[in-house]
Amino acid sequence: MNLIAQTTLQPADEDRIRNLARRLVNYRISDRKKQILMLLATGFKQVEIARRLKISRQAVSKALATIPDEFRLNAP
């Protein structure tokens, strides 16, 4: 939510976001992996993500390794 609040979306972004959402569905990215991506995009480090989600840092690392780079958002 913080990332969305910090981002100013333009009407032209709507198609890009819609296409990204479709690709997330097509790749069957789990909700947990989406959480990890959002936390990573907001600037959290892997160890911080692990603590926040109550999982191991290795689990975060493995999850990130299975996610295509196209879904990684730029950190602020």
Rank of each mutant, 00 (worst) to 15 (best):
L39Q: 09
Q58L: 14
Y27N: 08
L24Q: 13
L20N: 11
T66V: 01
A63H: 01
T8S: 08
L40V: 03
I4N: 09
T8Q: 10
K33F: 00
L37Q: 03
L3F: 06
A59C: 04
K33E: 15
K62S: 09
L53W: 05
T8H: 05
K62N: 14
A50W: 11
A21Y: 10
R16G: 09
R52T: 07
I67H: 03
I36V: 12
S56Q: 08
R32T: 10
V25K: 15
F44D: 05
L9F: 14
K33L: 06
N2F: 09
L37T: 01
L3T: 04
D69Q: 10
V25Q: 15
I36D: 05
I55P: 01
N2D: 11
N74V: 12
D13Q: 11
N19R: 14
I29F: 04
R22K: 15
A5K: 15
R51V: 01
R16A: 14
M38E: 11
Q10H: 15
R23E: 15
N26V: 06
N26A: 15
V47Y: 10
R72H: 15
M38H: 06
Q58T: 13
N26Y: 10
Q10R: 14
I4G: 00
D31C: 10
A41L: 01
S61H: 09
T66A: 08
E48I: 02
N2I: 07
L73H: 12
P11L: 07
A5R: 15
L9T: 02
L40F: 11
G43R: 03
S61C: 11
L53V: 03
K34P: 00
L73G: 07
R51G: 08
T66Q: 13
I4Y: 14
I67Y: 06
T42H: 08
E70C: 04
A59V: 04
T66Y: 04
L64R: 09
K34H: 05
K62V: 14
R28I: 03
R18I: 09
P68S: 10
I36K: 06
V60A: 03
K54V: 08
P68V: 05
L20P: 01
R57Y: 06
K62G: 00
T8K: 12
A65P: 00
Q6F: 07
L24R: 12
L3E: 07
S61W: 08
E48D: 06
A12W: 02
I4S: 07
L40A: 10
I17Q: 12
V47W: 06
R51T: 06
Q6S: 14
S61G: 02
R72V: 10
I29D: 03
K62T: 11
A41E: 01
A21I: 12
I36S: 03
L64G: 00
A50Q: 08
K62Q: 15
K54R: 14
A65M: 00
R57N: 13
D15C: 09
Y27S: 12
D69K: 09
I36P: 02
P76M: 01
K54E: 12
L24I: 14
I17C: 10
A63Q: 01
I17T: 08
T66R: 12
V25S: 12
